[in-house]
Every structure is written in structure tokens, then in C-alpha cells.
Simulated assay, not measured.
Amino acid sequence: MKKTEMQREASLEKMADHVLTAGLNAASLRPLAKAAGTSDRMLVYYFGDKAGLMTAILQRIAARTTAMMLAGGANAPLPLDACITRTISILGQAAFTPYLQLFLQIASLSAQGDPFYRQVGEQMGRVYFEWAKAQLVSENESARAREAAILMQRVEGMVFLRAIGLDDVNDLAAGTDKGNAHPA
């Protein structure tokens, strides 16, 4: 690996850490350059423009997420209900919190009409959909696609409910209600 490529990779790791810690609001060129220990001009040299830079950072973060999922045990296909339970258990670990918060930021920006984050969110969602299909033991490909969609809805719903403070509702859905349900 060339020195320039090594510097680019090292910068990318530091910027991914920065975005996970500070969020997308702190993802302008100067703060990213400071986090990477370089100049904003070097970032443009390495990545072309801000869109290229953000794409590279978000791809790196997505790769980390996948590696963490695999390390957490998401590597053997299961039937849908067992797969939902396993995936929610893995994502419930504290290490995933910044990743899930970032995903919610991307979803929020997409919902507000930001075309870049709409594209990024869709790309990430499609990758996750393919990952979800690979996690499932299903009777055929059509059933696998439908079950992957159900898995995604269930998991993303859990992430959203957790983000807005409705852990008691998540507990009810999981059958682990501890009598903490709040009346409507």
C-alpha cells in the first residue's frame, strides 16, 4: 500500500470515529480535517469533494457495522423469529448506539428532502436488506425476501422506539414486559 493510500485510510478511520462521536452536524470539512489531523485541502485531494468524502466515511462506518454484527454472532442463517430475536439482541448492545444514532440522523435528513442522504440511506438500506436475506432460513427466495423485509421493519421500528424513549413498548413487543408499560 502506498504512503498516500495509507494516509487516506488512516484519515478515514479518524473521520469515521469523529462522525460517530459528534454526528452529521459536525461533518463539515474543517472539523473532519481537524479530526483526521490534516487540512481540508488534503481531504479534497484524497476524496475529490465533500460528497465523495462523506460517501467514503459512511461506507467505512457501514463496513464496521457489518463486522460488528458478524462478531456478535450474526453469521448463521435462522428462521425469521429467531433471526429477529438475535438481531435485536445484537443491536441492543451499547457498542451499537452511535451507529444506530447515525442511521437515524441519515433517515431524518432523508425525510427532510436532502437528496444526498436520501441516496445514502437507500444504499445502506439495500445493503442491509441483502444482509437480512442472507440471515434467514426460508422455504424459497420469495419468502426470504418477504421475511427480510419483516426483519428490517421490526428492527428499524425497535431502533426508532428506543430513540424516542419507548423502551417499554419494545419490551412489550419482545414479550419481556416488566410491567413498565405507560398508559396512553
Rank of each mutant, 00 (worst) to 15 (best):
M1N: 08
K2E: 09
T4S: 11
R8S: 00
E9S: 10
A10V: 07
S11Y: 03
L12D: 00
E13K: 13
E13S: 09
K14L: 15
A16W: 00
D17H: 13
D17N: 12
H18I: 09
H18M: 12
T21Y: 14
T21F: 15
A22P: 00
A22H: 12
G23W: 08
A26P: 06
A27I: 07
A27R: 01
S28W: 04
P31T: 05
P31E: 09
P31K: 03
L32Y: 07
A33F: 01
K34P: 00
K34G: 01
A35E: 13
A35C: 08
A36R: 02
G37F: 05
M42Q: 14
V44C: 06
Y46M: 07
G48Q: 13
G48Y: 10
K50D: 02
K50A: 02
G52L: 08
M54D: 05
T55L: 13
T55N: 10
I57W: 06
I57E: 03
Q59W: 00
R60Q: 11
I61W: 04
A62T: 08
A67G: 04
M68Q: 13
M69C: 05
L70K: 11
L70A: 08
L70S: 03
A71T: 08
G72A: 13
N75C: 12
L78F: 07
P79I: 08
L80H: 12
L80E: 14
D81Y: 10
I88E: 13
G92C: 05
A94I: 04
T97I: 11
L100Y: 04
Q101D: 12
F103C: 02
L104C: 08
Q105V: 01
Q105I: 05
A107C: 07
L109Y: 11
Q112I: 05
D114T: 02
R118M: 04
R118C: 01
Q119W: 03
Q119D: 14
V120G: 02
G121D: 14
G121T: 11
E122N: 13
Q123I: 02
G125C: 03
Y128M: 14
E130A: 15
E130R: 14
E130C: 06
W131Y: 13
K133N: 09
K133C: 15
A134I: 06
Q135W: 05
V137Y: 09
V137A: 15
N140R: 10
R144F: 08
A145R: 15
R146T: 12
R146A: 14
R146M: 13
E147Y: 07
A148R: 03
A149D: 14
M152A: 10
M152F: 01
Q153F: 11
Q153L: 15
R154T: 15
V155F: 05
E156R: 09
E156F: 06
M158L: 02
V159Q: 00
V159A: 03
F160Y: 11
L161Q: 04
L161S: 07
L161C: 05
R162K: 11
A163M: 02
A163C: 01
I164F: 11
L166G: 00
D168R: 01
D171K: 03
L172F: 08
A173R: 12
A173K: 06
G175M: 03
T176L: 06
G179F: 01
G179D: 11
N180G: 06
A181W: 04
